[in-house]
Simulated assay, not measured.
Amino acid sequence: MVKNALQAQLLKAGLVDSKKAKKITKQAQHEQRTGQDHKASLIADIEKTQQSKQQKDLELNAEKQKQLEQRTLKANIQQMIQQHKIEKTEGEIAYQFIDEQKIKKIYINQQVYNALVAGSLVVAKATPYVLLATALAERIEQKMEGFILWNKSEENTQTTDENDPYAAYAIPDDLMW
């Protein structure tokens, strides 16, 4: 049981645990018997513990705030994608693109296919894959990466081998099989 009000307050504030309270009690009894005064060191220890706890709390709050901002930004981007997606794109032409090292396929009409090949539309990641205008896709990509899957305007960064006999022959991006 706690013997004085200071210990009760420290326990209630969470600055010390029951072991530390017992230690403080024993030290106080020892000081009374020997006549030594270690209250200043105890107060310094308490302040040091309190400062470290405050620092830890600040770090945890900053991490939580960062995670909250990330979730909010992601939700805002998903809402932008849903509001500005191109409607009525269904058709017979299969369009293939890569998402997370897997080839995905959507069926689109000829007009949308031509716009994708020309680079005025891009494929965006949503619950179903959607098509967006390039200007909006650039704004989304500036805010957070990972939502735009395929963009025709991106440069082809593949390097070719010097001894490749087919290096002179260009492969069209819109090749249909």
Rank of each mutant, 00 (worst) to 15 (best):
K19H: 04
F147T: 05
I43L: 11
I46Q: 04
H84Q: 08
Q29T: 13
V117F: 01
G91C: 06
A135D: 00
Y129I: 07
Q27L: 07
K22Y: 04
T127V: 10
I106E: 06
Q111D: 12
F147K: 03
D174P: 02
V117L: 10
T49C: 09
I86K: 07
A75P: 05
D161F: 07
I140L: 13
I46N: 05
L149K: 10
D99G: 05
N4D: 02
F97I: 06
Q55F: 09
G14T: 10
L136D: 08
Q51H: 12
K105M: 13
Q29K: 12
Q111N: 12
N156W: 01
I171M: 01
K12N: 03
Q111T: 10
T49R: 13
L6S: 02
I106V: 06
K143G: 05
E145K: 05
K48T: 11
A137I: 05
R33L: 12
K39V: 02
L60W: 04
D37N: 04
K39T: 08
E31T: 10
A21P: 07
A62F: 11
S41E: 07
V130Y: 03
Q82W: 13
P128W: 07
L15P: 01
N4M: 07
D37K: 09
D17K: 04
A170C: 05
Q67V: 07
A28G: 04
E69T: 09
A126T: 08
R33S: 15
Q101G: 13
E90C: 03
R71T: 15
L11M: 12
Q36E: 10
A115Y: 01
E138K: 00
F97T: 14
Q70M: 08
E90Q: 07
L175A: 06
Q32A: 14
H30L: 13
N61V: 06
T157N: 14
D174A: 02
G91W: 08
K20W: 02
E92K: 01
A115S: 00
K88H: 09
I24E: 08
Q67R: 15
E87K: 11
Q36N: 12
A44L: 15
D99C: 07
G146T: 09
D173L: 00
K64T: 06
P128N: 04
A5Q: 07
K74P: 04
N61P: 10
D37V: 03
M176Y: 06
A44V: 11
D161H: 15
K48P: 04
E145M: 03
Q7D: 03
K125A: 09
E154A: 11
N109H: 11
K56R: 12
H38K: 12
Q36A: 09
L10H: 03
Q79G: 09
K26R: 15
I106P: 00
A167L: 00
I81Q: 05
N156P: 12
A133S: 02
Q82A: 11
K26C: 05
I43S: 09
A135C: 03
T49S: 11
Q96S: 13
E141C: 00
A167Y: 00
E59W: 08
S52I: 14
W150K: 15
Q7S: 11
I81Y: 04
A62R: 10
A94S: 14
A62L: 13
Y129T: 07
